[in-house]
Design a protein around this nucleic acid. Structure first.
Lengths: 208, 208, 208, 208
DNA sequence: TATGAATGAGACTTCATTCAT
DNA sequence: AATGAATGAAGTCTCATTCAT
């Protein structure tokens, strides 16, 4: 009672606890989605009592938002962007696609959980959903820039369409892999998609 | 509302009640996913007490599985397949893509709820997930057949890859539209995708 | 609809249905006691819908009472009483004890369910409990008569005590066997008990 | 009632709450058995909301097991064992029987609830049943030791039989009293039983 | 003679959250 | 910085029973 500090480690290290909670929540939310992620389950997995989770996070929404942010960071870390820009536009597109494919295999939580949140239609959208859409927006702009660099002759609406199509392909291939397991050769499929995007850009540049 | 007579104890009418329950559940599950679909909410929406739902369905899992089946049927009904096969392979692909796009706009519940279920990684998979994967498998086989007809020179692995890519694009474009709302011009995007698939088939036929 | 009678047997045989219901209920009530015996479980075991059970029995209480009666009958049938009364009083007591022991092994439902009902202290006693106590009372009187015949020199209070003790031993040995399984050699224990009762009778006759 | 202050949100006091819950559960379970003991009823009796009961106990099974343990303790406390061992073996047996009889009158919950649980045959046995059988096993070993001390000439199987018989008589007499109310003179009956056990021991020691 | 369908009450349990310490 | 305890609302599901056919 009067012991100033508990001898069994756990020396009240705020940040470490916060990390442990998010770690646990990432795992569970990646498995079960928003509703399926209960505070009790997170508490059980990280070892801290539920009330401690509320010391670190305002509410469940807040926690899930943090989970999205964290898993986005993990994904960004896994996504090693090409330093130098060399080769033909097709080659550069292909390299980029390969990077994205690899990152999605290595850190799938961000996209899986994000898509789950995004597909829901409930009236009061969780904040995590907003965060997902925001960071997704950032990624989208990066891709658009890149495509603009590769295909300077395209105008803005064309770049918009091309970007949308590029992302849709990536999402769809990711979903495919999540559904069917490891069976899908993601690398080959992303390479195929890079070619499609490249052809589409050429058609746009030629025609219209 | 307009029901002329409503005796306190409604006349027993099994099949109609079953339909009303599924109707309500489709609506809610399409919005909120598996966990978000509470029996109480379904009960409130269909007017039958919760215990009556359990007369018609073994448990929540059973209900959700019925929901998947039902929304798959709706989707199939919305998907009007071309009767006559005329035109070039690209034209026929494009017509087909347009049909799929339209069906996804008209009856999006099947794919939205199915994807939500499919993305979850929980250890005990709900039966609805299995049903979704089954009917999806059927659809996949149909598409593979059709591609084989259009491109008879491709061998089986190539058809497999092409089918996977075609479906992934459809999934991805659907997701895009669900996320960003009506902003996406689904028709145009699906036409673009049809061209990509066509080009991919030609590349396959030509090269290694 | 207009078929006058369902072709698949089940020709609406009232008594047979009643028996099937009681059969099922005996099994379940013997396992789970009063509260644990649900109409749904009985329905599932006997194959008739729950509403049919209510055609044959007023309510659950009524059914359980019938169960008690039926299992009492089974027990009586298993209890083959000695036709001729020969031998010493100890021999005759021993034979009788052996009979009771055998009947309890062969038809334990009556006593097991009855004791469960009897041990409960709930304010509103189920009718089955009353039935149990009634038939038990009958059995008690039979035993008292028999002991009076064997030990004519004992007065009524002594016979009362002896009867109580004899029955208590039987109950206790039965409980023992139900708890520990087949391990208890019921025959030997009942023989031991017969000797105890015999000794007690002699002590009573001799002393006080 | 006499509690001087009762702040709306009661001061957290874990152990006291736990005791209050068990107190309430002992009372109800002693009356109604396992199935008849509803969490809602316990909640109403102890004043804590149902969800608080689940803070202290994993589930209903866990609570009932605690109830068994607690009522066993009460029974042990009521059972004042004789300090000095004096007198003949019959006298000592008789004293012991009187003690047991008194304890069963003063704290009947343990045996009543335990027997109810033990008589059930359901496939998945509640944990409380196991606990009951365990503590009963302990009591059995104590009695066996004591009988061995009183009758050193008996071998182990004989002691086993004698112990079983002694306990069966106690169980049976308890049941008798529970069923017929206070009418049974438990003291006299237990004395009679002590004599029976004593005679049985002598017979065993004397002959085969 | 029987039953498909319905129903309100209540079962056990988990939920997100709060608060005093 | 953290947590044991508490809590009302809501979760899924089963209960005994009824009634029109």
């Amino acid at each position: 009672m009067t012991r100033p500090q508990s001898p069994r480690r756990k020396r009240a290290n705020g940040m470490e606890s916060r990390q442990r909670i998010i770690d646990a929540a990432v795992e569970i939310a990646g498995e079960r989605g928003y509703e399926g992620t209960s505070i009790a389950a997170v508490s059980a997995k990280c070892g801290l009592p539920a009330s401690s989770i509320y010391w670190h996070f305002k509410d469940k929404d807040d926690l899930i938002a943090a989970v999205i942010e964290r898993s986005f960071d993990s994904w960004l870390a896994a996504l090693e962007l090409p330093g130098e820009e060399t080769g033909t536009s097709l080659e550069r597109l292909t390299v980029m696609a390969a990077n994205v494919a690899k990152s999605l295999v290595d850190a799938p939580d961000f996209l899986r959980l994000g898509l789950m949140l995004a597909l829901e239609r409930r009236p009061t959208k969780p904040r995590g959903r907003t965060v997902f859409l925001q960071v997704r927006g950032i990624a989208r702009r990066k891709i658009a820039e890149m495509l603009q660099t590769l295909f300077p002759e395209l105008d803005e609406p064309e770049i918009h369409t091309l970007t949308t199509y590029a992302i849709a392909g990536a999402d769809g291939l990711f979903v495919q892999r999540e559904i069917t397991g490891d069976a899908v050769n993601l690398m080959a499929m992303f390479e195929l998609h890079a070619q499609s995007v490249h052809e589409a850009a050429r058609r746009m540049a030629a025609g219209a």
